[in-house]
Structure formats: structure tokens, C-alpha cells
Design a binder for these strands. Structure first.
Length: 936
RNA sequence: GGGUGCUUAGCUCAGUUGGUAGAGCGCCGCCCUUACAAGGCGGAGGUGGUAGGUUCAAUUCCUACAGCGCCCACCA
């Protein structure tokens, strides 16, 4: 019996959490159940190569809280699990592993390499999903999906073919962002441009048949090998006479025209620009306008590809050096200036990206973007916080076609087949392509070759909200859960993912993919730095849950660094910051910390002090539960109907509970996890523990309190604890499950996960005003006595006698009702009520008194040693009140204020003035008293 | 260059229809009181980035400026 109803004496999250999660999983608690309205969240599928970082932990805590909240509210809830094949990232990981074993991707060949990737996925791909379980994530694992699953691949082909047939996917030779290390095209979004130091070189290009030359400026000397024109602004009078003439391109001796084009900024450099259409996006556009030749001078590796020249085979750096050297020899360098400019680098490789002319597949995005813009404009989809909508519009309204082909192997292969003549057949399968081919060629033998490229990973991600639910099949799940309720994600993938899901959802699933988009901030370290491996400031959420010793932490932070020379610095910083490693805080504390920090529109700084505080909060709750369970043995869990609070304190705590419940429900509805967690914390710690339990202790111990009343108290203790853990469950699933199961120990198999989040207790709110007034009065009396005690340096345990006086009937009633609580909570030996004549005759020297409304409480004191300090403190309070009175007076004397301010504000000001005056009188009296005592 | 966010107690941050400010941690003092020292009680600490404006009244609305940050953009 005891083991069943008692909680372990020490809060130990570690064993508790594993056991609880195991039970949930075994009882299949995460699948949608019940017959309520649908609630659905799609997990942003983590990369299959990933491991859980703080961002994931934060984001998934919020999603889990939402899912649990709505599940408890009775909705049939699905949190869809799954992961993303992450084309480039995964290919790089597996390639690196192969390399370590002495194998290479190219030697292995496409088929075998892909087999290797699947093999790797089977062995190591589940890391992050297992880590999510440690977070308490109630994802429906039975529905777990992978973007390369057969069903999802079918969806990808379906979408591709449909778009192609509609003319919204096309293939073409375009200048694209080319990563020369990966040797693939990447999208605009995958290019990160950062300002770097460089030079602006001024070259002299000789004018044909003339001794003159023009001076052009460039940051990329090596691309001059591919120049096909020099351009000036049409209105630039300095060069007007040159337009139409030609220059001889140095080193190559190619004759190229001088043209006029608006693109040129006359103010910049010399006002003459070299035009290299094959290696610059702007120049490409200029070339198209002016019918310039497009000369590619680079290989896919970004080496110079000019057979017969001395530059052939040189890489970019070498080529630049040689071009500069050769031009110097020819005295064609006019000058060199320092120059800051933006260098585009690939987000995966950090290598300089080249504009490169290749055949690629593109999505024509504008027609898709229009309805997607409209969906947000008309409020069908709401961003939270709303200001992200502007970011969304800015991008969507200026959207460029999306390059979706990638020259890698791991991914969805493009469903396009070519015959020997270069005809392309886009179809859902090779057979279907063959049929299309035969329709063209007749029934002859045709050899089809599938396109080598795969699709951008984000292409399949864009389908995630409906492909995971079975689309293109019309499944029940699709019907029931789509559109989903909310997407929880970071601002960094609004363009990559959110926008594309909206476009594709509207296009193919005939509806928006989600009603709301909750954008959360970035998790940074305690100093506000972005967490990154190379900074060595990464916190692993699992280390916060389980704890980690210093040596392991150092090892973890310094292992596998891209720049090994950073090791000593990182080690030193880590040893300094965590001399004792990181203690175990437990999942609930971590989750609560995230919730508490999740303020809107702001990044969050993760500070260990914060999580420690919330670990303490878990401990507080744990011990409060222990107290309740210990004192309520044999008390049957109440039902709402039979609940009838007997005492004022009960009425008060129940109305507080009701108030808290409402706040939390409202907060969840607007994604204010910070507000919800704040109110939970305050209710539990400052109301339930600090006052109600303390009152209950007094009354349960008080022999004059009858048994019926005590039983009512016990029921209320249990009832409030029960209700509280349910309110807390979405944020702290483990500890609340454990406590709740002890409360409801009669039913082993049940889980808090499926209990009502809150019952309708609105009828209890009626009790609150009276009860709250009385409780506030009692708290004020106790606080005042405590204050006097502390000021007078009385020992906390020392019982003192006290007296009180009031002629107000209400005070006297409250006094009667709360006598034992006041005495116990303020550690009084006695509390004698004085009448008017007692007060008159009483020797008030050596006493300190306080006034609560009209209720005066008088505490005799001895042995005051620090009069000066006490008087100084009083004088400060006197000053404060004096200033307040002056301020109130000046307001109340201001005719403008009296005529223009609303009546309630004026009343409030009058009340404030009155209470300040009363307070001031008290303070002055106390000061007089002290002065008097000091003189004695 | 365009956009956007932030600037409130030592630190990290709250403050939703304008009525002069709160929390956690830290700090100071007293306590191991039978749920909890991962605790209890009490306390100190803020000219709300700067300068104007609107208003009886501004942390809250408007303008300008400063500092920090982020996003977007084709200036060689």
C-alpha cells in the first residue's frame, strides 16, 4: 500500500523518465485516439544525418506541449513523425565514411553507393528519433515516414509529372549557382554571401587600331579570359565615342565589342565594365540583351578550360595569379585598390560558388506563388508572430524560378527519360515513359536513359504535410487531418520550406497545409552566441537531461573539429565555464525552461542558472506531492460533483486554480508558452505551496478543527494537486504522470495523457471574491508580523506574544476565522485581542505595531541592537511615501487631471493618497517609537 | 541599399487596448521548523538607450538619432 501511494523520497528524474516513456510506448499512447475533432502537427523532419541539438529540443518541446494539450482537451491528435533524406548532407556523410575505408563514391558507382547509403541509414539513421524519445515526445512512431519511402517517392513523381505537364517544370540551359566541390547546382537559398576583403584590379584593355585603351575594374581577374565585351553606360559622355568600337582582349587576343548598357554604373570604378556572360549573373543578362557570345572558360571543378593557352588546367587561385602576372608583364594593370565585396559560398562546403552554365530543371514559381500569397493575405494562414508575414510577402512577391535539379546521387531521381535523339519523356515510371516514347517513334525498339540528376531535397519536403498522410491516395488520414493545425518552425526555413509547402499544398492537396505558422527564435548560449561546433559552445540537450562530467564534456566538444587548432581554446573555455561538468537536470526541467524562455519574436539565451531553477521547481512539486499523498492516505479521489470546499482557504485556492486554468488555456491558444509556464510556476510555488499547504498543515494539526473539516481539506489538497499536474502535464510530462498515477493508484493502466486538461469548474469561481479578500487579509497580517520579527532580529523559531486591536467587525470576523493560522504562520506564542481601554492603558513602549486596514497588530520587542539601521530604513520608507503623497496631491490639485482623466483613475489616485498618508503616519509613529526606545 | 528585431534591477528577460515597473538567477541578513537546504522567512537594487513630439498623464503612441543583431539585394 505504501509503495503504491508514496512517492520516492528524492526526486530522481533519471529512472522515472525512462520508465514512464517505456510505459507510454508499450501502451501505444501516441496514436490518434478518441472521436474528437482533429488536431495535427507535422514534425519538421529532421535530417536523417542529424543528432539532437538545442534547436530541435526547443522546437519539439513546443510541439509536444501543443499535442499533449490538445490531446487532453479531447481532440484526436496526431503528431506526425519522420525524417528527411537530406540529399547533399547525407551523401557527404556517407562519402566521408567510405573515404575512411579507402573507398570512393565514384569507384563504387551509383547503384552500389546508394545501397551503401541505405545501409548507413538502417544502422545510424535512427539517432535523432531515439533522442526525441528522451525528450518525452509523443510523436506517433507507428506512422513514422522517411522522405525516400516508396509512398513519398510516388508523391514526388506525381507532383513532378503534373507540374511538367502543366508547363510549370521546364528544363533549360541557364546560369546557375555551381558548387565546384560537390559539382552540383544549388539553389539561390543555399548560397551564403558574406563580405570579405579583396581587391579591385583596374586593367587596361587596348582599343583596336589605336594606341588608346579603356580601363575596366574587376574583383575576379581570372574571368577576363571569358570576356566577350566591355560595357559603358549609354549616357556616359566620356566613353560615347568608343561605343561600337572594339578592344583586343589581352592574353587571349580576342577582339570584343564596346557596348552601351544601362546596367553599368558610371559612378563606380572607371565606368567601364568587362562583360563575362558565362561567369556572372549580371553579365549573362547583359549578354542576352546585346547578343554577346557566351564563352565558358571553366570546368565543373572550376579549373580553367582553355586548351592551347597557358591557363588551361589551372585552378581559380592559380589562374588569377598567372593572369595578374602576365598582365603586369604587359604593363596592363592600371592600379589595384583594396576592396570589400560579397563572396558567395555554398552553405554545405563553404567554397566559393561559380555561376555556371548548365542544363538544369526549374520550377516556374510565379503561378504557384500567387495563391500562396493570397492564402496569407486573406488570413487563411496566420503567422505567429505576425511580422513574419511581411518577410514572406517580400520574398514571394519577388520570387525567382527554383532550380530543382542536383548533380548528386542520393535523392529522388528526376522522372525524365531521354531517347537517343535527345527527346525527353517525363513520366511516372520508366514504362510510362516508354509508352510516351513509342507514341512518338512508333512501336520500334527504343533505348531510354533516365536523367542522372536528383531533385533538391526541399522538393520532397514541400509535400510533407500531405505525402505523409498518404497523398496521392485519398486516405482517411488525409481527409481527417489535412489541413494540419500549426507548423512550428524557425524563421530560417520560411523560404526553404514553409513557402513551398504552402504553394504545393494549395496546388496538389487543394488546401492550405496548416492554419498557423508559429515561428520561434534561435537558441543561443548564455552569452548570446550562436551555438556551433567550431565555437565550442554547443550544449547537448541530452547532457542537460542526464548530466555529463567535465572530461567527457571536453572530449565531446573537441572531437572531430574542422579546425583542430581550436582545441586548446575550446578546452580552456569549457573547463573554466563548467569546472564540475554539467549536473543532471532531467527532461521536465529542460522542457519547462524552454517553455519559460519561449517569448515571442526573440532569440533565447540558454543559461544553466535558469534550468537549475526549474529543476528546483520540479523538486518543489515533487515534495508538495509527497506531502499531499502522505496526508491524504485513504482519501478517495474526489469527483467534481461531490467536491464542496468547507473552509475559506479551500475556496480561495480553488478559485486561484480556476483563474490559473483559464490563463493557461488562453496562453496555449496564442502560443504563449512563457505565460503559461509562468502562471503554473507562480500558482504552484507562491500560492499552493507557500500558503495553502502551510495553512493545511496548521489546520490538520489543530485539535479544535473537526474531522469533517479536515477531510474536506484533504480532499481539496488532493483535488488541487490532481488538477495542477494535469495543467502542467503538456510542459512536464514525466513528473506529472508519476504524481498523477500515485493519486489515482487504483487504476494501474491509466495515464494522465488522456485525462481532461481541465474540468468546468466555473461554479467555483463564485467563491473567490470573499475568500480572496479574507485570505489577502490573513496573508497581510502574517507578512507584517514576519516583517517586524525580521526587522527586530528575532530568531525564526522563537515564539513571541502579540496583541491586536480593531473595531471593524470584518477584521474581528477574519481574526476569529484565522487565529490559529496567523499564530502558527507568524510563530506567535499568543495573540490577545485588546479592547479600546486595554489599548489606552497599555504600555506601548518596547512594542512595534503594524496596521492592516483597521486591524492593528502589536509585537513587544526586546534587545534591539541596531536602532540606527532600523531608523535609517524607516526614514527611507518615509521618504518614499512622502514623495508619493506629493505626487498624488499635485495630480489631484491639477484641474486638467480632474476634468480629463476617467473617474476610476481619479478614485484610484485618491485611494492611493489616503493609503500613503496612513502608511506614512504608521512609519512616523514607528520611528518615534524606536527613537524613544533608543533613548531609554 | 531595402527591410526587420532589440536597447527595462548586477545578469537573463516579462509587462496586449497610455495611469510612473515585475519575475528568475545573483547579492545581503536570519534559520537544517517533522513535503522540500534543489528549502523557509525577510531585505537591498531601476532618472525604463538618447533627444524631441502628442496627452491631464508615456516604459507603453509618433518622429529623429545612437548602439547591437538578423534577413534580403546584381553594383563590376
Amino acid at each position: 500500500m505504501n509503495s503504491k501511494t508514496n512517492l520516492a523520497s528524492v526526486y530522481d528524474p533519471h529512472t522515472l523518465e525512462k520508465e514512464v516513456y517505456r510505459r507510454w510506448e508499450e501502451s501505444d499512447s501516441f496514436s490518434p485516439s478518441g472521436d474528437g475533432e482533429s488536431y495535427c502537427i507535422m514534425i519538421p523532419p529532421p535530417n536523417v544525418t542529424g543528432s539532437l541539438h538545442m534547436g530541435h529540443a526547443f522546437q519539439n518541446t513546443l510541439m509536444d506541449a501543443l499535442t499533449r494539450f490538445h490531446r487532453m482537451k479531447g481532440r484526436k491528435s496526431l503528431w506526425q513523425a519522420g525524417s528527411d533524406h537530406a540529399g547533399i548532407a547525407t551523401q557527404m556523410v556517407v562519402e566521408r565514411l567510405l573515404l575512411a575505408e579507402g573507398e570512393s563514391r565514384t569507384e563504387l558507382g551509383r547503384e552500389k553507393f546508394i545501397d551503401k547509403v541505405w545501409e548507413w541509414k538502417a544502422n545510424s539513421g535512427g539517432t535523432i528519433t531515439n533522442q526525441l524519445k528522451r525528450l518525452g515526445a509523443s510523436l506517433d512512431w507507428s506512422r513514422e515516414r522517411f522522405t525516400m519511402d516508396e509512398d513519398l517517392s510516388t508523391a514526388v513523381r506525381e507532383v513532378f509529372v503534373s507540374l511538367y505537364e502543366e508547363g510549370l517544370i521546364y528544363r533549360g540551359k541557364r546560369l546557375v549557382n555551381w558548387d565546384p566541390v560537390l559539382k552540383t547546382a544549388i539553389s539561390d537559398l543555399e548560397v551564403i554571401s558574406e563580405e570579405e576583403h579583396g581587391f579591385l584590379w583596374h586593367f587596361k584593355y587596348p582599343i583596336s587600331n589605336s594606341s588608346e585603351h579603356v580601363v575596366i575594374a574587376t574583383t575576379r581577374p581570372e574571368t577576363m579570359l571569358g570576356d566577350t565585351a566591355v560595357a559603358v553606360h549609354p549616357d556616359d559622355e566620356r566613353y560615347a565615342h568608343l561605343v561600337g568600337k572594339t578592344v583586343i582582349l589581352p592574353l587571349i587576343d580576342r577582339e570584343i565589342p564596346i557596348i552601351a548598357d544601362d546596367y553599368v554604373d558610371s559612378e563606380f570604378g572607371t565606368g567601364c565594365v568587362k562583360i563575362t556572360p558565362a561567369h556572372d549573373f549580371n553579365d549573362f543578362a547583359v549578354g542576352e540583351r546585346n547578343n554577346l557570345e557566351v564563352i565558358n572558360v571553366m570546368t565543373p571543378e572550376a579549373n580553367i578550360d582553355l586548351a592551347g593557352t597557358p591557363y588551361h588546367g589551372l585552378n581559380r587561385t592559380q589562374a588569377r595569379a598567372k593572369v595578374l602576372e602576365d598582365l603586369t608583364q604587359l604593363d596592363l594593370i592600371d592600379k589595384v585598390e583594396n576592396h570589400k565585396y560579397k563572396v558567395p559560398r555554398g552553405d554545405r562546403t563553404d567554397q566559393v560558388i561559380e555561376p555556371f552554365l548548365t542544363d538544369q530543371w526549374f520550377v516556374k514559381v510565379k503561378p504557384l506563388a500567387e495563391p500562396a500569397i493570397e492564402a496569407v493575405k486573406n488570413g487563411s494562414i496566420k503567422f505567429v508572430p505576425k511580422n513574419w508575414e511581411r518577410t514572406y510577402f517580400d520574398w514571394m512577391e519577388n520570387i525567382e524560378d527554383w532550380c530543382i535539379s542536383r548533380q548528386i546521387w542520393w535523392g529522388h531521381r528526376i522522372p525524365a527519360w531521354y531517347d537517343e535523339h535527345g527527346n525527353v519523356f517525363v513520366a511516372r515510371s520508366e514504362d510510362a515513359a516508354m509508352q510516351k516514347a513509342k507514341a512518338v517513334h512508333g512501336d520500334i525498339e527504343i533505348h531510354l536513359r533516365q536523367d542522372e540528376d536528383v531533385l533538391d531535397t526541399w522538393f520532397s519536403s514541400a509535400l510533407w504535410p500531405f505525402s505523409t498522410l498518404g497523398w496521392p491516395k485519398k486516405t482517411e488520414e488525409l481527409e481527417f487531418f489535412y489541413p494540419t493545425n500549426v507548423l512550428v518552425t524557425g524563421f530560417d526555413i520560411i523560404f526553404f520550406w514553409v513557402a513551398r509547402m504552402i504553394m504545393f499544398g494549395l496546388k496538389f492537396a487543394d488546401d492550405i497545409p496548416f492554419h498557423e505558422v508559429y515561428i520561434h527564435g534561435l537558441v543561443r548560449d548564455a552569452e548570446g552566441q550562436k551555438m556551433s561546433k567550431s565555437k565550442g559552445n554547443i550544449l547537448d540537450p541530452l547532457d542537460l537531461i542526464d548530466g555529463i562530467d567535465l572530461e567527457n564534456l571536453v572530449a565531446k566538444r573537441t572531437r572531430g573539429l574542422m579546425q583542430p587548432d581550436l582545441v586548446p581554446k575550446i578546452e580552456e573555455a569549457t573547463r573554466k565555464q563548467y569546472p564540475d561538468g554539467i549536473p543532471a537536470f532531467g527532461t521536465d526541467a529542460l522542457r519547462f525552461t524552454f517553455a519559460r524562455l519561449a517569448t515571442q519574436g526573440r532569440d533565447i539565451r540558454f543559461d544553466l542558472n535558469r534550468i537549475e531553477g526549474y529543476r528546483n521547481f520540479c523538486n518543489k512539486l515533487w515534495n508538495a506531492a509527497r506531502f499531499v499523498l502522505m496526508n491524504c492516505k485513504g482519501v478517495r479521489p474526489y469527483s467534481v460533483d461531490e467536491f464542496q470546499p468547507a473552509t475559506t482557504a479551500e475556496k480561495w485556492i480553488v478559485s486561484k486554480l480556476h483563474e490559473t486554468t483559464l490563463t493557461i488555456e488562453q496562453s496555449f491558444a496564442i502560443y504563449r508558452f512563457d505565460i503559461a509556464s509562468k502562471h503554473l510556476y507562480e500558482f504552484i510555488w507562491d500560492e499552493f505551496c507557500a500558503w495553502f499547504i502551510e495553512i493545511a498543515k496548521v489546520m490538520l494539526r489543530d485539535e479544535s478543527v473537526d474531522e469533517q473539516c479536515k477531510n474536506s481539506l484533504r480532499k481539496t489538497l488532493l483535488m488541487v494537486l490532481d488538477a495542477t499536474v494535469r495543467l502542467l502535464h503538456p510542459l512536464m510530462p514525466y513528473i506529472t504522470e508519476e504524481i498523477w498515477r500515485k493519486i489515482r493508484a487504483e487504476n494501474e493502466d491509466n495515464s494522465i495523457m488522456f485525462q481532461d486538461f481541465s474540468s468546468d469548474r466555473s461554479q467555483w469561481a463564485d467563491a473567490d471574491e470573499r475568500a480572496t479578500e479574507e485570505m489577502d487579509w490573513m496573508k497581510a497580517v502574517v507578512s507584517n508580523v514576519r516583517n517586524i520579527r525580521s526587522d527586530m532580529n528575532m530568531k525564526p523559531g522563537e515564539r513571541v506574544a502579540a496583541y491586536c486591536h480593531s473595531n471593524n467587525p470584518k477584521d474581528l470576523e477574519y481574526f476569529q476565522n484565522n487565529l490559529s493560522c496567523i499564530m502558527e504562520l507568524s510563530k506567535l506564542k499568543s495573540l490577545e485581542k485588546l479592547n479600546d481601554s486595554d489599548i489606552q492603558s497599555m504600555n506601548m513602549s518596547n512594542t512595534i505595531s503594524a496596521l492592516i486596514n483597521e486591524f492593528r497588530i502589536i509585537v513587544p520587542v526586546q534587545e534591539i541592537t541596531d536602532f540606527d539601521e532600523q531608523i535609517k530604513r524607516l526614514e527611507k520608507d518615509i521618504d518614499t511615501q512622502t514623495i508619493q503623497i506629493r505626487r498624488s496631491n499635485s495630480k489631484l490639485e491639477n484641474q486638467q487631471f480632474l476634468t480629463k482623466a476617467p473617474a476610476d483613475i481619479i478614485d484610484k489616485e485618491r485611494t492611493r493618497l489616503a493609503s500613503s498618508q496612513k502608511e506614512l503616519a504608521e512609519l512616523i509613529a514607528r520611528r518615534e517609537k524606536l527613537t524613544e526606545m533608543m533613548i531609554q
